[in-house]
């Protein structure tokens, strides 16, 4: 017997919808994990990466030791895949330390909660955000879109370095945006290939006056900065790669009603304005417009006229009354409609 299992709360339903495969995907989330043995520097590396990505809940750091995770060994991925499923993360960084591979950091990606590819690097000469002061004065804004700069011939020729480049871009790029505020360009990930290492630096960008439209750029090391020795890596199989690189079919944009573009005004929208009921509008009432006052004023005027012309006062008075009999509201209404 099978039965339908539905989420019991709206919240759970929303969560499931968030996690469902989409044509336009959410930006990837990063999961940071510790191995059985770690050093202070590898812990700091993990927490610095967490700091870089935590904006908008795009990073999750677990501090528990994981003895079941051995990414490059057969069967050592089960726990990793479970955690990826649980947290809905498709990127992971696993820090560990051993005699054979000191200060080891494994970067990896997931596709459909299965390991897609991985790269192992050794961390050397690590300078944390804290020691560098985060470029304190010009500290990059949390969650801002970073730039990437890759220097070195190996990033083109060596497949391992190419792989590294792809991973770093995927790990750090954050959300794909259509527009960017030029003032918001405030950080760059700089990678220089030297020998078998990559010099990895996270720098803050500062704009200086140059006298032209384009400012002069200055870089200040903001941390984390480190040298990464490339160790083992595992690239995705061609089949998996093909599957993961599949592009979403292009959707024709739905026609937006009542919006048009004008060469002069730009975007022009037509909107519905309900009929204005001017007649029922509450207006400030002036004393001078009260009926008694009006009548009085009219009487006065007529009496003055009587004095000057003498006679026929009653009749004019009656006429004046009739004239003002209609309420001011009614008059306004007829005007409004």
């Amino acid at each position: 017997m099978l039965r339908i299992v539905k989420p019991k709360t709206k919240r759970a339903k929303r969560e499931l919808e968030k996690r469902a495969p989409k044509l336009e995907e959410n930006s990837k989330k990063l999961l940071l994990l510790h191995g059985t043995k770690t050093t202070a520097s590898i812990k700091q590396v993990l927490s610095d990466f967490y700091h870089l990505r935590k904006e908008g809940g795009k990073a999750i750091k677990y501090t528990k030791k994981n003895d079941a995770i051995r990414p490059f060994e057969g069967g050592g991925e089960t726990s990793l895949e479970f955690l990826s499923q649980k947290t809905d993360c498709s990127l992971f960084a696993f820090g560990s330390h051993s005699k054979k591979r000191p200060n080891n950091l494994v970067f990896g990606r997931m596709f459909d909660h299965h390991v897609y590819d991985m790269m192992e690097v050794g961390i050397e000469d690590f300078k944390s955000i804290e020691t560098l002061g985060g470029g304190r004065k010009a500290a990059p804004q949390a969650g801002s879109k970073p730039c990437f700069a890759f220097v070195g011939e190996k990033f083109e020729s060596d497949p391992k370095f190419r792989h590294f480049k792809e991973l770093i871009v995927d790990f750090m790029r954050g959300e794909v945006v259509e527009t960017i505020n030029l003032q918001g360009l405030d950080r760059v990930f700089l990678c220089v290939a030297v020998g078998d290492k990559v010099i990895f630096k996270h720098c803050a960008i500062r704009f200086k006056k140059s006298g032209t439209k384009v400012p002069r750029v200055e870089l200040i090391e903001a941390g984390p900065c480190m040298n990464m020795v490339l160790r083992r890596n595992r690239e995705p199989s061609t089949d998996l790669r093909k599957e993961a690189m599949r592009l979403a079919p292009k959707t024709s944009k739905k026609k937006v009603k009542n919006v048009s573009t004008d060469s002069l005004a730009g975007k022009v929208g037509r909107m519905y304005v309900p009929a204005q009921e001017v007649g029922d509008m509450a207006l400030t009432k002036m004393k001078g417009l009260k009926r008694e006052r009006r009548a009085e004023a009219a009487a006065k005027a007529s009496s003055l006229r009587n004095k000057s012309e003498s006679g026929g006062g009653d009749v004019t008075m009656g006429e004046a009354e009739n004239e003002f009999a209609g309420s001011p509201n009614k008059k306004l209404k007829s005007k409004g409609t």
Binding site: R109, D112, E178, L182, Q183, R241, E243, M245
Partner: peptide, 21 residues
């Protein structure tokens, strides 16, 4: 807040995290 620039689509294609729906 400043000047906004429209960016082209990324040309460096990266893998999806989940299969197409």
């Amino acid at each position: 807040t400043g000047r906004l620039v429209t960016l082209p689509k990324p040309s460096f294609q990266l893998p999806r995290e989940k299969p197409l729906p």
